[in-house]
Design a protein around this nucleic acid. Structure first.
Length: 589
DNA sequence: GAGACATGTCATGAT
DNA sequence: TTATCATGACATGTC
């Protein structure tokens, strides 16, 4: 701890005055007095220091746990790889398994909540003692699994010379044991830090799907290694350059890919595990402790979703059930079982030059689910480059220029008459955009070395120059022409619809304006009518007023029925008998 | 399942 | 003559 010397009282008072002056200078900036408060800052400083110490302590703990986990790895001096040390004798493994499970169970029996650190400590201590491998750790999980058929595999670990505890031998024999173990298993799974195990293992399994693909091996080198226990991500090239191979590569040859649609064959599953751990044990007859043939027990297909093991790894979807740690990949879809095959089984592989567009579209629709959703089939991020790398129908050394390998939407220039996102749609459109368009698929199928964007958007001259540089067969030429025509027409249709919509909007706007003008004119007309009516009224009043003041020679008033007042152009007003009224008008004309 | 809507495509006429 | 554009009509997919 850093010692802080407290100033003397006098100096303290001077400091306080100085602080006050400074605070008053900054008060306009909204600075609070507490900013200059020495004691408060000291408290904050101590608090911060305490947090720092706690953080360091946690990091130290994590490092120790990591060290304990890596203790079972051995550095291969020749290859520089981290290789798991040779598996211990079955006795050791059994003891280790028992030790861990006993520790976990004893904790569970005591009603204690197992924290992640406690679990890690138990595991780390055990690993330090006997150096068990990661596969043993996997078997510990198996042991903890309440599924009896899976647990039967423990009998393989326990040789006749070294009997294993009852809890491991036959969990089904005792319902109490089963319940306890299930409880311990659930406690282990309930730890939030371990729940990420499933996802990370899934990622490794996705990697394992490509274990036979050279292209994917390259990808796997850049893959992040997930430490499922510590949740530490390390670049593979940093910590263990071929770490994934420790769990995938060496075992891949031993482990047949287990294919199943909706069910899971436990027998083959256990066989795979036995092969992984020690190929010799595959000769051991599969019998459980009750003497019942193991094959009989596991003969019936087991719903994979019912296995707690699935839940442990990632029980959300049975189709994604995989075990990457053991190198076993249980693929429930034919596509994921052999991605290269599924990718390569494109209808375009045969380069069907004779097909018309409609026929090609028919085939498009039939194979759409295979081709269009590579990213949906595999949980790992699937890039277009990866697609090219995997797809045997596209030669890797030729074909696409740089533009073709980039998503066309990115650098597509926005035309003046075309909005940047002319057809903004919901997520379905984004999925549509993410997939290859049909024309792109066709172009790739026929090995057209241009992107569809280029074919469509190049000016005529540039397009002709480009075409003259390559030799195309008739099918390719027809396809390129069609692509260009369709692309142009597509843009034209978009623009046309956009114009149509703009026209509709404009006409609606005009209609609104005209309606407004009409209303306005009607209102004006009403006002003018009112004014006219008023003027007429006033004129009538004035007329009668003038007429009433006119008298003949005898002083009698003129009858308005017999006479009327009329005004000539020069402004003179005459009293005219009504019979002569028309004649006067004629004279005026 | 029907209907609305968005989008792609084709046919056709105009430029 | 050919390419391109504009637009109506139709088909298809999605909500």
């Amino acid at each position: 701890m850093m010692e802080i010397e407290l100033p003397p009282a006098k100096q303290l008072q001077q400091d306080m005055d100085l602080i006050d002056i400074l605070w008053k200078q900054d008060i306009d900036l909204g600075v609070g007095r507490e900013v200059f408060d020495y004691s408060q800052r000291q408290k904050e400083y101590e608090l911060e220091k305490q947090k720092k110490l706690e953080k360091e302590h946690q990091e130290q703990l994590l490092k120790e746990q990591e060290k304990a986990l890596y203790a079972h790895l051995q550095l291969d001096e020749e290859t520089g790889e981290c290789i798991p040390v040779q598996p211990p004798a079955p006795m050791e493994a059994a003891v280790v398994t028992h030790t861990v499970t006993s520790s976990l169970q004893s904790k569970s029996d005591l009603g204690q909540q197992l924290s992640f650190d406690e679990c890690m400590k138990i595991l780390a201590d055990t690993f330090l003692v006997v150096n068990i491998t990661f596969l043993d750790f996997f078997l510990i999980f198996l042991t903890m699994a309440p599924d009896a058929q899976i647990d039967t595999s423990q009998s393989f670990l326990a040789t006749e010379q070294h009997p294993v505890p009852d809890s491991l031998q036959s969990p089904t024999a005792s319902p109490e044991n089963l319940q306890e173990m299930e409880q311990a298993w659930e406690e282990l799974l309930s730890i939030p830090e371990l729940q990420c195990l499933g996802n990370q293992i899934d990622n490794l399994v996705d990697l394992s799907l490509y274990s036979n693909s050279d292209a994917m091996l390259e990808t796997s080198n850049n893959y992040m290694f997930h430490n499922p226990l510590l949740n530490i991500e390390k670049p593979v090239e940093d910590a263990a350059p071929v770490f994934s191979n420790d769990f995938v590569g060496p075992f891949a040859s031993n482990v047949p890919t287990v294919n199943t649609n909706s069910t899971f064959n436990v027998e083959s599953f256990c066989d795979d595990i036995f092969t992984l751990i020690d190929p010799k044990v595959t000769n051991v007859p599969l019998t459980d402790n009750l003497g019942q043939p193991f094959a009989q027990i596991v003969n019936e297909p087991v719903d994979i979703t019912a296995l707690s093991l699935c839940k442990a790894f990632n029980g959300n979807s049975p189709a994604e059930f995989n075990d990457s740690d053991s190198g076993i990949s249980i693929n429930t879809s034919p596509c994921s079982a052999s991605p290269g095959q599924s990718m390569g089984s494109s209808i375009y592989e045969d380069a069907h030059y004779g097909y018309s567009d409609s026929e090609m579209e028919d085939m498009d629709s039939k194979t759409e689910d295979v081709q269009q959703n590579p990213s949906e089939k595999f949980s790992m991020p699937f890039t277009e480059d990866a697609f090219y790398a995997l797809s045997p129908m596209v030669p890797l050394d030729t074909c696409f220029d740089i533009e073709a390998q980039n998503p066309p939407e990115k650098d597509l220039p926005v035309k003046p008459g075309q909005s940047k996102t002319p057809f903004t749609k919901d997520k379905s459109l984004s999925q549509e955009e993410a997939r290859f368009s049909r024309d792109e698929q066709r172009a790739k199928a026929l090995n057209v070395p241009f992107s569809v964007d280029k074919i469509v958007n190049l000016p005529v001259d540039d397009f002709n120059v480009l075409m003259s540089k390559h030799q195309f067969n008739e099918a390719q030429l027809a396809l390129i022409r069609d692509i260009r025509r369709r692309g142009k027409n597509k843009v034209a249709a978009q623009n046309c619809r956009k114009r149509k919509m703009e026209n509709i909007v404009e006409l609606e706007s005009d209609l609104d304006k005209l309606k407004y003008e009409k209303e306005k004119l009607l209102a004006e007309k009403g006002e003018y009518n009112n004014s006219l009516r008023l003027l007429k009224k006033q004129l009538g009043t004035l007329y009668m007023d003038v007429f009433s003041k006119l008298h003949d020679e005898d002083g009698n008033p003129y009858s308005p029925h017999e006479y009327s007042l009329q005004q000539t152009k020069d402004g003179n007003v005459f009293l005219v008998p009504k019979a002569n009224k028309i004649e006067i008008k004629k004279e005026q004309i």
